[in-house]
Design a protein around this nucleic acid. Structure first.
Lengths: 283, 283
DNA sequence: ACGGTTCACTTGTCCGACAAACGGACGATG
DNA sequence: CATCGTCCGTTTGTCGGACAAGTGAACCGT
């Protein structure tokens, strides 16, 4: 587990411009003439982060492995602990390292959850509209349902059944069902068994489905239509009927937009942030 | 630009557990009984990051605005500069702040580039296969071509034309064309004018198209098939022919996989790390 | 052998310091 | 008068050291 051979800068004086770039700009390679490249001198803390990142990406640090302590890490890399800490903070946000049981840092692979959270934020800041999100999920969700119809397992079907029952119960009581709706669609997409697929849809789904919340309260038959559609989709999945699953999902997503418009909500305006202050801990 | 009213912890002694949680766990609200929540005391540096993040997300810090200097920031928040720095490092990786012209930090909105880079890494670590990526782009690329056929502008068409010409030239010379191939598809997806769409496909595209590099060298007619397909797609786009654009893109993507298989490359094995050491600065 | 106590280790935070680079003001020069 | 070079304050990057609180494991008493 020793990450030796990765010393960053042996000098203890602040000299961030000597060793850090030694590997990239030195040799002239193109026969053009001498026009120098950007000469990007990365700050040491970033070199630290990249070094550890490489250790993980190239498999020398397996997910779950404990990282050395900050002091040890700083010493091995030949940098100050403060600098090493800044590098770790960089990685921490990426999801490549995580805190297990309080203190120690472990290597990890970033799951789709943390990535989609950041992606959602970015989409919000880019003023993404309802139409944008709908357009994307219109391309993804029916296809996902179709593929899931052949791959879905009994446990996922059971989970969908439970989800649907709970949704119906909440509709009876007039409670909000956005979270369950989101979950229903996520289970189906997860059943495809394609991490890339899941990641591609997650960010948009996190924004689109909650955007329907105001619609549910304004159109009192909207929840029932949703439940009915989910029922049909689930039936199609259970029967392994690819085209039924695809088609009902397609209608469901189309209906989703129609309901949104019927409720008088603007589809070409930036969606609002869905107040996601939940912290979803692992209690 | 003053972000006052956001002091984190007025005490100068190391007391990270006093003020930081004051706002969440105090009042009992559910009638159940007294069972306390996880009481997650976030480290101060994370509170710093979340505070600044909130300033940006809620529009008080517009993209492009200069952040206060580290010293000023630390003073305003009532924390040490080292702690403030760690918080900034967290944000730096997220893309919510960026270095403009060397020194000063500016607020920014994360573009699809930095997000997709991280997403690609995550997919690699999750052992995503060629089939996974292909499955996703099979659902996205033809639809993108179809939509772009009605929305694409003259400048994008010109860019595609240039791209295609350059691709042909490189094929003549036997050079690698992966970068141009990736760009061709990206221009089309960007022409849709949907940030969510772009973000959803980018990570997968960054992995799938480079994966075809070995194929190009093994099947010497593959590059010509690619150029021909691009030609048809571009013609469809220029003519505004939705179905032609969709269909040729569909065939192109299918052909892509067939070529991969013909070259004897495994489609159900994790894709390799495409050696993306490029730094793509904004010269 | 089991449960409680102790202690080294680790993290989070703070303090202070300084070299280098940047940016803008100031002054010199053609 | 405009352009250029120089100087200086500001800011960042990095370092060293310090300490409180929490963790985990060894240790010890019953």
């Amino acid at each position: 587990m020793s990450a030796d051979g990765a010393a960053v800068d042996p000098s203890h004086a602040p000299a961030r411009d000597s060793a850090t770039q030694a590997g990239q700009g030195a040799g002239g390679e193109d026969g053009d003439s001498l026009h120098f490249r950007k000469l990007a001198v990365a700050p040491t803390y970033r070199v630290v982060a990249e070094t550890i990142e490489r250790e993980i990406m190239e498999g020398r640090l397996q997910p779950g492995d404990r990282l050395p302590s900050e002091t040890a890490l700083a010493e091995q890399l030949g940098v100050n602990r403060s600098t090493a800490r800044e590098g770790l903070r960089l990685l921490e946000q990426t999801g490549l390292v995580e805190r297990k049981s309080g203190r120690r840092l472990h290597a990890a692979i970033p799951g789709h959850v943390e990535l989609s959270t950041r992606a959602s934020r970015a989409l919000l800041l880019q003023q993404v509209t309802f139409i944008d999100l709908h357009q994307l999920l219109m391309a993804l969700e029916p296809a996902a349902a179709a593929m899931a119809a052949t791959t879905i397992g009994e446990d996922d079907l059971a989970a969908l059944e439970r989800n649907l029952a709970e949704t119906e119960a909440r509709v009876e009581r007039g409670e909000t069902i956005t979270a369950l709706d989101t979950e229903f669609h996520e289970i189906i997409s997860a059943a495809v068994g394609n991490p890339a697929w899941l990641m591609a849809r997650e960010a948009a789904a996190k924004l689109l489905f909650p955007a329907a919340d105001p619609m549910m309260s304004r159109l009192d038959q909207a929840p029932h239509r949703l439940v009915a559609a989910h029922r049909r989709i689930l039936d199609g999945l259970r029967a392994g009927d690819v085209e039924a699953a695809r088609e009902w999902m397609r209608k469901h997503i189309i209906d989703f937009k129609r309901g949104y418009e019927l409720a008088g909500l603007p589809t070409d305006r930036p969606v609002h942030h869905p107040l996601n202050q939940e912290k979803d801990e692992q209690s």
